[in-house]
Computed example of a mutant assay.
Amino acid sequence: MAQTRPYYADRSLSAAHYDIVTAADARLTGDIDIYDGLAPAAGSVLELGAGAGRIALALAERGHPVVGVEIAPAMLAQAQAKRAAAEPQVAGRVEFRRGDMTALDLGQSFDLVLCPYFTLAHVPAGAAWRNTFAVMARHLAPGGLVAVHLPLLELMRQPGGPRPDLPVLDRPLEPGGRLLLYVRERLFREAVGRLDQVIEYVELDAKGGVVRRSLERLTYYCADPSPFAQGAGLEPDRAPIALGGVGEIHVFRRAAA
């Protein structure tokens, strides 16, 4: 098998086609409405793992000042380009910064701190989760909320998976090509709550010829977030919010003194 690169790495097709893949993922439908509803009107938002800016820009359009933090340069460049092309009043409400969600200190607080689209699940459920929850608590204004979107463990541990010879996504590309995604490998390690997948991205031209292809490793870790939140002085605010049948948004608030 060809060399496998990390998801969202520089020159990866996962980064190049992030918008196409997320737009096609019906399991994300309604997430922006949920996050908007968790923040007060015009309340400030910190997004950890801002990706290409999908959520941050949408919340800015709804009147929220947003700081989006992203560690992957390829994703951050896309977010900044979208901000530059946005309407001035929207662009003025959003800022993108490069940073590590496990070791961040912006010196300011926010009404809502987000860790959306399985971002926390990309790092091991140990010190990295403890540090990330500490970062979220550190940036939380009094009365504010933390929202963390995580995959469902019972789905991650299901045996089997998509057939490796059939695409799980087939979408058009300009001008006339197509993007295909295949799940070539899938393995869940129960002892560490880790799901490893090798996803192959294939770009086709208008005649069906292969333009580019890329094997990329997508890893998710899953655990109960509550102990990590409690360790950071946060407590559950409500029952987890189901999203798309494959994940839940866990909402926390600062524990009473």
Rank of each mutant, 00 (worst) to 15 (best):
A2T: 08
R5N: 05
P6S: 03
A16V: 08
V21M: 10
T29W: 06
I32W: 06
Y35N: 01
D36C: 04
A39F: 04
A41Q: 10
L46F: 00
I55D: 09
A58E: 15
L59Q: 02
E61F: 03
G63V: 00
I71W: 04
P73Y: 13
M75T: 06
L76D: 03
A77G: 05
A77E: 12
A77M: 09
K82W: 10
K82I: 07
A84T: 15
Q89K: 13
V90Q: 10
A91Y: 09
V94M: 07
R98M: 07
D100K: 06
D100P: 07
M101L: 15
D105V: 02
P116T: 04
T119F: 10
L120G: 13
A127C: 03
R130D: 14
T132M: 05
V135M: 00
V135P: 01
M136R: 03
R138L: 09
L145C: 09
A147Q: 07
E154L: 06
R157G: 07
R163Q: 14
P164I: 05
L166P: 01
D170I: 07
P175E: 14
P175T: 08
R178M: 01
R189K: 13
E190G: 05
V192R: 15
L195S: 05
V202P: 12
R212K: 15
R213F: 01
R217C: 03
Y221F: 11
Y221I: 00
D224M: 11
S226C: 11
G231T: 05
G231K: 11
G233C: 07
G233N: 08
E235C: 05
R238C: 10
A239N: 15
I241E: 12
L243I: 09
G245S: 11
E248N: 11
V251L: 04
V251Y: 05
A256M: 10
A257G: 12
